[in-house]
């Protein structure tokens, strides 16, 4: 799993690449301080080819901590396989999901 960061309209976009699963999820949190601080971010999932329930739990945990501290997480670019996991678990009710990471950053900046 590789993690990249970039800024867009003042909002950090964290791009995850690879498998976000039970083995990689614990390491993800340590790889980017943007995931654990209080700022609003966008997580670009276009490079994630596999997501399991531990990976989902990791995203849910990030959202909970951010929101408790006044920040937010938007998700972008879920492929069909990821969408299925969100659909079955109803996690789609927790996240704003965009089909474009930079556009998501734009809407986050406006708020």
């Amino acid at each position: 799993m590789t993690v990249n960061e970039k800024k867009c309209k003042g909002i950090t976009i964290v791009s995850l690449n690879g498998s976000l699963d039970a083995a990689s999820a614990p390491g993800v949190l340590n790889s980017s301080s943007a995931l654990t601080d209080t700022q609003s971010i966008v997580i670009d999932l276009s490079g994630v080819d596999f997501l399991d329930s531990s990976g989902l739990g990791c995203l849910v945990g990030i959202a909970r901590k951010k929101r408790e501290q006044g920040g937010d997480v938007r998700l972008a670019c879920l492929n069909e396989k990821l969408r299925k996991v969100f659909d079955i678990t109803r996690a789609s009710r927790l996240f704003d999901i965009y089909d474009d990471a930079e556009y998501a950053a734009g809407t986050a900046a406006k708020k």
Binding site: D52, S53, S54, L56, G57, C58, V60, G61, A63, R64, V85, I88, T89, R90, A91, R93, L94
Partner: peptide, 21 residues
């Protein structure tokens, strides 16, 4: 069963997924 999603559960989705898939 998975706890209510709106309470931000971080675990317990696994068997729910399996049963649905």
């Amino acid at each position: 069963q998975v706890p209510d999603i709106l309470s931000y559960p971080e675990h317990g989705y696994g068997l729910v997924l399996i049963r649905q898939l």
